[in-house]
Simulated scan of single mutants.
Amino acid sequence: MKLSFRLLAAALPLLLAACAHKEAVRPQADYTVLLDQQRAREHQLAKADHWVLQGKIGVSGQVNGKSDGGSGTLTWTQNGDSYEFVVRGPVGSKSFRLSVTPDGAVLDGLDGGPVRSPDAESLVEKALGWRVPLRDLRAWVLGLRADSGPAELKFGPDGLPATLTQDGWNVTYPAWNTTREPAVPNKVFAENPPNKVRLSVESWSFQ
């Protein structure tokens, strides 16, 4: 009897620890469930084409073998298929306004006056030395997959996208604004080595 009591006393801490471990570990929802939740987010945000994002942007990388980059405050105003991308850099750095419509893009604020091009991405790359995936970024900044091709998603413990891989870019989402419904990202980091784009969102305004 004494032996049995001693064995029970010795085993009790191990049993309690095992129970505590089981309670602490919560398996993530099935990937199919998370993907369905993502599709629901994408459906909700599919018509969100009038909004203003304010925050900060940082760009670094190489174009034609030359390293370049920059940073500044960003105001991104989306109006349907048109948008305005205003970057104000620190003193001595690049500040500009990029206005894009279905008819083309205009870059203003740099030496030499306004520059125009049918394609916004090539215009920014040529004029600024920045390689920014503007076509896809409109979707990625909302935490959505772009319609440009296959995409791979991985989800975090909160059930929201943690990484998105598409068109050669790896997009990570270190922080989300979950006070909104549906949730939107607070940080968006896109990388296609050696090029990087980092967005830190301070405020969202949807119309």
Results as ranks from 00 to 15, higher is better:
Val184Arg: 09
Thr163Asn: 05
Val197Pro: 00
Ala175Glu: 13
Trp51Cys: 04
Phe206Arg: 01
Gly89Lys: 02
Glu202Trp: 00
Ala24Trp: 02
Glu23Leu: 15
Phe206His: 02
Pro157Tyr: 09
Ser200Ala: 14
Thr178Val: 15
Phe206Ala: 06
Glu152Asp: 14
Ala24Asp: 10
Glu125Lys: 15
Leu3Val: 12
Phe155Thr: 01
Asp111Leu: 11
Pro185Ser: 05
Thr178Phe: 03
Val124Tyr: 02
Asp111Arg: 15
Pro13Ala: 10
Trp51Leu: 14
Asn195Thr: 06
Leu53Ala: 02
Thr77Val: 13
Asn177Ala: 07
Asp103Cys: 02
Trp140Leu: 10
Val59Cys: 02
Thr163Glu: 14
Val106Cys: 07
Val63Ile: 12
Trp176Phe: 01
Met1Tyr: 13
Gly156His: 07
Asp136Thr: 06
Pro27Gln: 12
Phe155Cys: 03
Gln62Tyr: 04
Pro13Arg: 10
Asp30Cys: 09
Gln78Asp: 04
Thr32Ser: 12
Ser99Cys: 01
Gly70Cys: 05
Thr179Met: 03
Ser99Phe: 04
Pro182Ser: 04
Trp169Leu: 08
Gly69Val: 08
Ala11Gly: 10
Lys47Asn: 08
Ala146Gln: 09
Gly168Ala: 09
Ala139Tyr: 10
Leu15Asp: 00
His43Val: 09
Leu14Gly: 14
Ser200Val: 13
Gly159Ile: 10
Asp49Thr: 10
Val59Asp: 03
Thr172Met: 06
His50Arg: 11
Ser95Met: 04
Pro114Asn: 06
Asn170Gln: 13
Asn79Pro: 05
Ala151Glu: 05
Gly72His: 04
Tyr31Val: 15
Arg26Ile: 09
Thr165Val: 11
Gly61Asp: 08
Thr163Leu: 01
Ala24Gly: 01
Val188Glu: 07
Gln28Leu: 14
Lys2Phe: 12
Pro174Leu: 10
Gln38Arg: 00
Asn170Ile: 06
Leu160Ser: 05
Phe206Pro: 03
Asp108Glu: 15
His50Asp: 13
Gly104Pro: 04
Pro90Cys: 12
Leu7Asp: 05
Pro193Tyr: 11
Cys19Ser: 11
Glu191Ser: 14
Pro194Val: 08
Val59His: 03
Pro182Leu: 01
Ser200Ile: 12
Leu15Gln: 01
Ser200Pro: 02
Thr73Tyr: 07
Leu8Trp: 13
Arg135Val: 14
Val52Asp: 12
Ser122Leu: 14
Thr163Val: 01
Ser60Pro: 06
Gln166Trp: 00
Thr163Cys: 02
Gly113Val: 00
Gly72Trp: 00
Asp119His: 11
Ala11Phe: 13
Cys19Gly: 08
Pro150Tyr: 07
Ser203Gly: 06
Ala162Met: 08
Lys2Met: 15
Asp68Ile: 01
Asn79Gln: 15
